[in-house]
Nucleic acid binder design. Structure first.
Lengths: 220, 220
DNA sequence: AAAATAGTGTCTATTAGACAGTATGCC
DNA sequence: GGCATACTGTCTAATAGACACTATTTT
C-alpha cells in the first residue's frame, strides 16, 4: 500500500521565455526548497481530476483554456523520505495569465524560467526536464502550441511559443507560411490587432487538427 | 493509501502480424477473461524493476534484447472491483521468441493478434490500444523497430515490422533506401542470409541513433 | 519619410513516392 | 532459363530553408 500524489509541470510563456510554476515548500521534507505544485490524490478521486483540482488550487485557473495531460509516473522507493509515494506527474500548458500566482494555498506559487530552474525538491528536477522535453516534442507534431496562446492570437505570438520552448530562432516568413498552410493548424478570424508599430497582424484561432501533417520539425 | 500494480503491453511480430501477450485469468475478478500480464509492485521495488520482473515471470525472457518503457498510468477509482488499484502500464517490444509462452506462473501466457484483441479484463482494452498507438508513433521518429528484430536482421524483416504495426504496405525499394541512408538507423555487418528463394539479403544491426531524423512518417 | 512589423513570392536543396531496371540466389 | 527476392537508379512532386520584396501601420 502506497500513497499516490500528483505533481504538476505547469508551463507558460512570459516575456518570450518558457516559465514554470513553482512553490516554495513551507514544511519538511525539503523545507525552503522550490518544488512543483502537487498533492495527494483523494480516496475516491480520479488522477486527472486530482491534477485539475491542484491546478485550480495553485493557479486559480479554471483550466478551460490551455491543456492538461498525463506526463509520467515516478515511483522510486526512496524518492520521498516520508515513505513510499508514487507520483503521477501531469503537464499543463497555459496562456500567460493575468493572475498567475493567486494561490488559495498557504504556499504561494511563482513563475520561474523553466530552462534554468534546478535544485528542486524530491526528484522534481527530473520531472520538470521530462515535462519540457514532452512539450518540445509535442510542438513538432501537434497543434498544441496554441494552448500557450489566448483564444485569438497572431502568427508572431504562435512563433514566439516555438522559439521560447525550443530555445531557437525561427524564420518569421517561413513560419508564417507553414502555420497558415498546414491543414487545421490555425483558423483565420478576419480580425486584426494593432501592435505598437508596424502593420497590424491578422488574428487566428486554434484549428480543428490535433496532429500536424507534415510535422513542424525542430531545426537540428 | 492504494495498491500499485504494473500491467504489461508486450508486443512482438509473429507471422507478419503484430501480436500481444495475454493471460487467461484463473481467479476472480474477471475469471476466465483474457488480460494483460501484470502484478502488484513489491514494497521496496522500483516500478521499472517490477515491470521487468513480471516480464521475466510471464515470458521467461531476460529482456536483454527488446525494449521496455513506461506507457501510462491508469487510476480510475473503480477500475478494479477489489478496491483502489493504480496501475502503471509498461510497453515491451520483443523479437519473436522461440519460448514465447513459457510461464512459471500458474496462468499460461498466449500470443494473440494485437489489433483484434478485445473484451479484455479491467480497462485492459484501453491500455492495449494506448500501447499499440505508442508503438506506432515511436516507429515514426525512433529506431525502435529494431527492438522487434533479432540482433541481426534484413531490411525486409525491418520493413515487416513497420507493415505489421502500422497495418499498411510499404514500397520495398523506397523503404530500403530510407533505412540504409538515415543516419544511425542500421549498421551493415557485411554478412548475408540466404532465403528460401531469391538473392540473399544483407544482414544489419541496430544503429547508434535513438531518434530518426528526418522521421519515417506513416502514410496518410 | 523613416521605422517597424506583417505578409507574399521565388529560388534552391532535400526528401518522398512511383517505378524501371539490374543483381544474385534457387528450382 | 525461369522465377523470386534484393538492391540501385531515375524521374517527379512536395516541402523546407534562405531571402528579396511588398503591405500597412505608427512616429
Amino acid at each position: 500500500m502506497v500513497d499516490v500524489a500528483v505533481d504538476l509541470v505547469v508551463l507558460t510563456i512570459r516575456g518570450g521565455e518558457l516559465c514554470t510554476l513553482l512553490i516554495r515548500r513551507g514544511v519538511a521534507p525539503h523545507k525552503g526548497r522550490w518544488a512543483l505544485p502537487g498533492g495527494f490524490v483523494l480516496a475516491d478521486e480520479d488522477l486527472a481530476a486530482a491534477a485539475g483540482r491542484e491546478l485550480r488550487e495553485e493557479t486559480g485557473v479554471a483550466s478551460v483554456a490551455g491543456h492538461l495531460e498525463q506526463l509520467r509516473t515516478y515511483g522510486a522507493p526512496r524518492r520521498d523520505p516520508r515513505g513510499r509515494v508514487v507520483s503521477v506527474a501531469y503537464l499543463a500548458l497555459l496562456p500567460d495569465l493575468p493572475v498567475p500566482t493567486a494561490g488559495s494555498d498557504a504556499a504561494v506559487a511563482h513563475w520561474r524560467p523553466a530552462h534554468t530552474a534546478t535544485r528542486l525538491a524530491f526528484d522534481h528536477d527530473t520531472i520538470l526536464r521530462d515535462g519540457i522535453e514532452r512539450a518540445s516534442a509535442k510542438l513538432e507534431y501537434t497543434s498544441l502550441a496554441a494552448a500557450f496562446c489566448p483564444p485569438e492570437f497572431t502568427i508572431a505570438e504562435l512563433r514566439a511559443v516555438y522559439e521560447a520552448v525550443w530555445g531557437t530562432d525561427l524564420d518569421p516568413r517561413n513560419f508564417h507560411r507553414k502555420a497558415t498552410t498546414t491543414d487545421g493548424f490555425v483558423k483565420a478570424t478576419g480580425r486584426r490587432r494593432a501592435q505598437a508599430a508596424g502593420r497590424p497582424a491578422e488574428l487566428f484561432q486554434r484549428g480543428d487538427a490535433e496532429v500536424l501533417y507534415p510535422p513542424l520539425l525542430r531545426p537540428r
